[in-house]
Each structure stands twice: as structure tokens, then as C-alpha cells.
Computed example of a mutant assay.
Amino acid sequence: MASIFSKIVNGEIPSHKIAETEDFLAFLDAFPITKGHVLVIPKTEIDYIFDLDEELYAKLFLFAKSIVPALQKTVPCLRIGVSVIGLEVPHAHIHLLPLNSMSDADFSKKIKISQEELAQLAEEIRGNL
């Protein structure tokens, strides 16, 4: 069965896309822990990030890095944090998190943000790419 991320890649589930290439997709997390929480995925469904071949692994992180300047410009923060947990969705992914404190990286807390706010935020980030 396809992961929720594969369904997003295939257009079966809507998302607020930030950037896309032939191999990768970045989109706003629908249940963010910080404003501007971005998920970066390979389009190929591979469960565990360390099962990616070396080339795909390196390119995934380079793709994620390319989004950081636009994210920082859009969401004022001290840093963009990177997290790879890999338990919540069986599809390799990287979390990009605008951070102002360590407590901003608490995955047990979600923020409330409307679909309209997510759409506006995605548009602003894309505009800063």
C-alpha cells in the first residue's frame, strides 16, 4: 500500500508544495510543530532513510538545503533545524524546522494553522526561492 507521501506525490492527496524536481518534493507539513515546518521527500517510496543509495541520499539533503534560504527569509528564526525520525510515515523524509529555541523541536506539540494560512505561507516561501 502506498504511503501518504506517495499519495501526495501522485496527486491523490493535496499538499502545499514548496519545491519539486523529478526526484524530490518539498511541502508544508499538514500538522506542523512550528510555522514553516517543511517535509522533504524522495519521490521514490523507500521506508528508511539509510536504505537510500548514497547518490539519492546526498541529493535529498542537497535539495533540502536549497530550500533553507527561502524558508529563513519567509519565517524569521534563529536557525532552520533538521530532523530525521522516520517512525511516523514509512517513507524517507527530512523535517526542516524554523527554530528559535530547543522547545520548538518538540514533536509532541502541534501548532494550529488553517489551510488558508498554509497556502499563503507556501506561496511566500516559493516566492523567496
Score class of each variant (00 low, 15 high):
residue 30 A to Y: 01
residue 95 H to D: 05
residue 42 P to I: 05
residue 84 V to H: 05
residue 83 S to N: 05
residue 88 E to Y: 02
residue 80 I to S: 07
residue 53 D to V: 08
residue 115 Q to Y: 00
residue 97 L to T: 06
residue 125 I to C: 01
residue 37 H to K: 11
residue 74 T to R: 02
residue 118 L to D: 07
residue 102 M to F: 12
residue 28 L to E: 10
residue 110 K to T: 15
residue 76 P to V: 03
residue 73 K to V: 08
residue 45 E to Q: 14
residue 8 I to K: 02
residue 1 M to I: 11
residue 73 K to D: 12
residue 104 D to S: 12
residue 74 T to I: 00
residue 36 G to N: 09
residue 17 K to D: 12
residue 120 Q to Y: 02
residue 8 I to Y: 03
residue 83 S to I: 10
residue 106 D to G: 01
residue 101 S to P: 10
residue 47 D to S: 13
residue 52 L to G: 04
residue 111 I to L: 14
residue 121 L to A: 08
residue 5 F to G: 00
residue 32 P to Q: 12
residue 51 D to T: 10
residue 48 Y to K: 15
residue 64 A to M: 08
residue 102 M to N: 09
residue 42 P to V: 09
residue 106 D to Q: 05
residue 118 L to V: 07
residue 75 V to G: 00
residue 13 I to H: 02
residue 71 L to N: 08
residue 66 S to Q: 11
residue 128 N to R: 03
residue 55 E to S: 15
residue 55 E to Y: 12
residue 34 T to G: 08
residue 12 E to W: 05
residue 55 E to M: 14
residue 123 E to T: 13
residue 15 S to M: 03
residue 58 A to F: 04
residue 36 G to L: 09
residue 86 G to A: 11
residue 18 I to T: 04
residue 53 D to I: 10
residue 25 L to M: 06
residue 7 K to H: 07
residue 18 I to D: 02
residue 2 A to C: 00
residue 42 P to M: 07
residue 120 Q to D: 12
residue 36 G to T: 08
residue 49 I to V: 15
residue 81 G to L: 08
residue 95 H to Q: 04
residue 30 A to H: 08
residue 12 E to R: 04
residue 78 L to A: 13
residue 60 L to D: 11
residue 32 P to Y: 07
residue 62 L to Q: 14
residue 33 I to L: 14
residue 58 A to R: 11
residue 67 I to M: 05
